[in-house]
Amino acid sequence: MKTITVTIRTSIFLMIIFLVYQLAVTGIAQVFMPHKANGSLVYDGNNQLIGSELIGQTFVSPRYFHGRVSSIEYNAAASGTPNYAPSNPDLLERIQASVAEWKAANPDVPVNKLPVDLITNSGSGLDPDISPASARAQIPRISGLTGIPKETLEKLVTEHTDGRDLGLFGEERVNVLKLNMALSELLAK
């Protein structure tokens, strides 16, 4: 009986302490790092919220760089994947369809230049990045459709390639939203 009352009294006090802990972290974060603390949100020239630099979004137009496959269509109210096992026939079918689609949209780039990250579903369904190779593989298509020279696009991709953290942790990657924002600026000129 004593254990029960001690537990209840201690628990209530601990719950308050942990709530204070979280509010304190929130306070520090909001005062010193409001941009990051609120989700690294990105606004356009008219101060309209267009997304988060950490969260991927769907790009359908072939004139834009495309991100990874997302079974939830980048719905960031949730997160998720189809969780296909490597042996699942649906996985093979989906990838074969992606490859066929690639061939149709990118006749100049052979399939052996198509990196695997571009036709696989990310873990979160919200992956903001693609590999630099995946960005480069899309250059011929975008150049053909927009008339922007390949060299300019090449330069754009290089500029938007983020290195490994401290030169060590993580992989090289290109943020698709930021890349497309830069591309859209080029097009507007």
Binding site: R68, T81, N83, Y84, P86, L91, I95, Q96, V99, V111, N112, K113, L114, P115, V116, D117, I119, T120, N121, S122, G123, S124, D127, D129, I130, S131, A133, G170, E171, R173
Partner: peptide, 16 residues
């Protein structure tokens, strides 16, 4: 399937 697979298994993984 003949795609470029130097990255290894990427289904369910994040590029970063």
């Amino acid at each position: 399937l003949g795609i470029q697979h130097a990255q290894g298994s990427m289904e369910g993984k994040e590029v970063r």
